[in-house]
């Protein structure tokens, strides 16, 4: 299987007052194309840190993170930003939509940054994505006019609009009620199936884990268990 993400002996330490907290300890991990992986573990186990490393929004203290075989830890800010723009999609726990932009504009934003598509192409892609997440009718709404579930759908559409190879979702259901959370998970699974997009998301919600094909359990910055579940895939 083609490795989308590979971590080689990745450690991450944070200073915390006079102490140093070790969030990741020499972690090795490989995630293949089209995987639907859950990173699970209790609070403070290092889930978010792991996602930050994979998402190239933070650099490891030691070790190397490879995205599609390309080492990233020595990249300059500009290059790393470009890599995020073209290869990665982000779904945040708090949705993180830009409040002054409409749903449509939020989704269009990464395409504008890429600057590769014409106005008509962008518009078509944005509509397609919003249809996909079931929000075709809400294009002109601003985030504060939408419900939590609707916002997260917009966020998913934004994460997918640039056709990223890897989508990172950090506790995507944490701020949603159970039913909405499950709908969102179903939506991500559907996209994973239909587009072969690699999904990596962190959660400590057992109901979410039920839907994962692979669960990586982390405790104290180390992988404690890495299981492939046949159930839902």
């Amino acid at each position: 299987m083609e490795a989308m993400v590979e971590l080689r002996k990745v450690s991450k330490e944070y200073p915390l007052g006079k102490l140093t907290v070790r969030a990741l300890a020499e972690m090795d991990l490989c995630i293949g194309k089209g995987e639907f992986t859950v990173v699970a573990g209790p609070s403070g186990s290092g889930k978010t840190t792991l996602l930050n490393m994979v998402g190239c929004v933070d650099v490891p203290s030691s070790g190397e993170v490879l995205i599609e075989g390309q080492p990233t830890s020595r990249l300059k800010d500009r290059a790393r930003t470009k890599l995020r723009l073209h290869k990665l999609g982000f779904i945040f726990q708090t949705f993180n939509l830009i409040p002054v932009l409409t749903a449509e504009q939020n989704v269009e934003f990464p395409l504008l940054l890429q600057g590769e598509l014409s106005r008509a192409e962008r518009r078509a892609r944005v509509r397609e994505m919003l249809e996909l997440v079931g929000l075709g009718a809400l294009v002109r709404q601003r985030p504060n006019e939408m419900s939590g579930g609707q916002r997260q759908r917009v966020a998913i559409a934004r994460a997918l609009v640039s056709l990223p190879h890897i989508v990172l979702a950090d506790e995507p259901t944490a701020n949603l009620d159970t039913a909405t959370g499950l709908t969102i998970i179903e939506l991500m699974k559907k996209l994973n199936r239909e587009r072969q997009t690699t999904f990596i998301f962190s959660t400590h919600d057992p109901r979410v884990m039920e839907h994962a094909r692979r669960i990586v359990r982390i405790v104290d910055g180390r992988i404690e268990g890495d299981a492939t579940c046949g159930g839902s895939a």
């Binding site: 998402g55 929004v57 995020r84 723009l85 073209h86 982000f90 993180n96 830009i98 409040p99 934003f109």
Partner: peptide
């Protein structure tokens, strides 16, 4: 901060 951080995370350069 959150908004700007998000823009940066999804690929906006600092110059933007």
């Amino acid at each position: 901060v959150m908004e700007i951080g998000t823009m940066r995370a999804i690929g906006a350069q600092a110059s933007l």
